[in-house]
């Protein structure tokens, strides 16, 4: 689905990582961990086409990301749901409209209105549907971001520190949603420095833990 082969990325002349390879198979669950500044967010951005590798190949659904034009990247993003730590909503739209935004931009809003209500109920936000993003708590915003990420029924869900701003109980709830999605066949990649979250997940789902450190991607797990 998503494959990185011998990838390097430099920013401002400094090499963030090099010789990095990663393959996200369909239905797999990956955690990406590592110290702050190691390049986790950059690696995720390479995985959904927001950044281009300095060298090496990034294949998104068997297409070379470097050869895609901006509109083709936009089409790819519809197959990859992204959850950011800071959520990124349009503050003038209600949560319902924000969650439905991927449908709106792809011209499918009316066809999926029933699914939208179900989805809001699934993440426990039906009551908050008509509220504006600034009126919601951090946890509610994260769940809304997850709902928005999955509304197009993407093949892959990428989450960047999704539990960074929320309490443990809410983190557990979000993790349950991600595990549920994985059981539905979605490929999940979660960047986190929360080892407790990884430990909690490992007891519920078969997952692979990758550690980005010293510019290299290593298999982790034994210590967790």
């Amino acid at each position: 689905m998503i494959e990185l082969e011998d990838v390097a990325y430099s920013y401002g002349g400094a090499e963030l990582f090099s010789g990095l390879s990663l393959k996200l198979a369909p239905g797999s669950f990956h955690f990406l961990t590592g110290p702050s500044g190691a390049g986790k967010t950059t690696l995720l951005k390479l995985c959904y086409g927001e950044l281009l590798a300095t060298s090496g190949h990034v294949m998104l659904f068997e297409q070379d990301a470097a050869r895609l034009d901006r509109d083709q990247v936009a089409m790819m993003r519809r197959r990859i749901g992204v959850v950011h730590q800071d959520c990124q909503f349009l503050d003038h739209l209600t949560m319902r409209d924000n969650v439905a935004l991927p449908l709106t931009v792809s011209g499918r809003s009316s066809a999926f209105s029933a699914d939208l209500d179900d989805l809001l109920a699934w993440v426990g936000l039906r009551r908050q549907a008509d509220q504006l993003p600034p009126q919601l708590s951090g946890g509610e915003r994260q769940r809304a971001a997850l709902a928005r990420a999955v509304i197009m029924s993407p093949d892959v869900i990428i989450a960047d520190e999704p539990t960074g701003n929320i309490d443990w109980e809410m983190s557990q709830r979000l993790l349950s949603l991600l595990i549920e999605l994985n059981k539905m066949g979605k490929t999940i990649l979660v960047a986190t420095h929360d080892l407790n979250l990884i430990r909690a997940a490992k007891s519920q789902v078969s997952s692979r833990v990758l550690r980005l450190k010293d510019r290299q991607l290593q298999q982790a797990g034994a210590e967790l």
Binding site: R70, A74, R78, P102, V105, M152
Partner: peptide, 16 residues
């Protein structure tokens, strides 16, 4: 700029 970023994130094409 933030609106554009969000719209791109959810798969909006430049034309849209």
């Amino acid at each position: 700029a933030q609106v554009i970023r969000v719209m791109r994130l959810v798969g909006a094409e430049d034309g849209y």
